[in-house]
């Protein structure tokens, strides 16, 4: 469920980046103040563990296929929410840089989707609640199961929202949700089973590891207050500000573009309509019913602007594009030739 750079708009990307940075900064502060110093290497090594464990296939019973681990819950259960969140952030950064899983622009989204919900929602409010009376293999199983599923569901829903707000695909809200949630329910169940069996094993072999974490953060410490407050403030300021500007006053943005660029040919209006329609849809009481109406409306609005502005540019754009490609290829060839000649002369 890594979000790719291609699916998000800069607004969404930078908003989520700043939100994530806020949560991370808070986590670092928490860790610095009350951490036993051994946690740093522990975070590093556990992060690496999860990274490598994600590549092991676990056979899913009765299906003949296999799935793998996300690992957010294991990190939180063994490191606590703050260190767990940071460890997850490292893993995702390495995946983005080295494997192209998610990208730099989408990094904030990904850390939030995969780290925030498990560490700061599922862990304190589900896992901790279920295991508050002490750990045993039964409640570890239930706690990991439910929190893994819920964590993933929230993450998946977040993916849907971020994608829609970015307006890069045509998927309507309802369809997208119907696609994402059930898939992630299945993934979540596997994740939960694997998480449960690993935590159970660790608990049996080295109970002190789990008890130490459990003791350091007693249930009911309201992370939500501080973290969500910070989160909301950041989100409202950055995202709210930008998308309000874009949605309430689309002409305003266009106008400023015109001033800067001297042209209105930037087809940003589609994006704005998309955001606009989603905001409408979100505020509606019956989303699905209302959505169709607004969808049609936006589409018809688009029709007025889109072909007239873009059809011409697309046709000749294709020719221009082909030439761009040809030019790019030519440059590549020339540089390569020069390089080769240099190599030859150097070897002489």
């Amino acid at each position: 469920m890594h979000m790719a750079d291609a699916l998000i708009s800069p607004t969404v990307g930078f908003t989520m980046m700043s939100v994530t940075a806020g949560v991370a900064a808070y986590s670092i502060k928490k860790i610095q103040s009350d951490m036993d110093e051994k946690k740093i290497p522990m975070m590093g090594v556990l992060g690496a563990f999860i990274f490598a464990a994600q590549m092991i296939n676990f056979t899913i019973p009765a299906t003949g296929s296999s799935g793998h681990l996300g690992g957010g819950m294991i990190l939180t259960a063994l490191l606590g929410p703050y260190a767990g969140f940071l460890a997850m952030a490292s893993i995702l950064l390495i995946q983005a840089l080295f494997f192209g899983d998610g990208g730099l622009l989408a990094y904030g989204c990904n850390v939030f989707n995969m780290g925030f919900y498990t560490c700061f929602i599922a862990y304190p409010y589900i896992y901790k609640l279920i295991t508050r009376k002490g750990l045993n293999s039964h409640n570890i199983f239930i706690a990991s199961m439910i929190s893994a599923v819920i964590g993933l569901q929230l993450g998946a829903f977040s993916v849907v929202l971020e994608t829609l707000f970015s307006g890069k695909t045509e998927l309507p809200f309802g369809t997208f949700v119907m696609l994402m949630q059930p898939i992630h329910l299945a993934i979540g169940i596997v994740e939960g089973l694997v998480t449960a069996s690993i935590i159970n094993f660790v608990w049996k072999a080295r109970p002190e590891l789990l008890e130490k974490v459990a003791a350091s953060e007693s249930f009911g410490t309201l992370y939500l207050n501080k973290i969500l407050k910070g989160f909301l403030v950041a989100a409202v300021i950055v995202g709210g500000g930008l998308s309000w500007f874009a949605s309430v006053n689309p002409d305003g943005l266009e106008w400023s573009m015109q001033k800067v660029a001297g042209t209105t040919e930037l087809s940003t209006s589609d994006e704005m309509h998309q955001i606009f329609s989603i905001i409408q849809e979100k505020t509606a009481l019956l989303p699905d019913y209302n959505f169709k109406g607004t969808e049609e409306k936006t589409v018809s609005e688009n029709e007025n602007t889109w072909p007239s502005v873009n059809i011409g540019t697309t046709v000749s754009g294709l020719l221009g594009g082909a030439m761009t490609f040809a030019l790019a290829g030519l440059i590549g060839l020339i540089v390569n030739l020069i390089k080769r000649r240099e190599d030859v002369s150097a070897s002489k």
């Binding site: 556990l46 563990f49 056979t59 003949g64 069996s197 094993f201 072999a205």
Partner: peptide
């Protein structure tokens, strides 16, 4: 087996984690 069977999930990954 295609992957690690469910009876060994805990002990396999758990050993590694320890």
């Amino acid at each position: 087996q295609k992957g690690i069977s469910k009876h060994n999930w805990g002990s396999f990954a758990g050993q590694l984690i320890l």
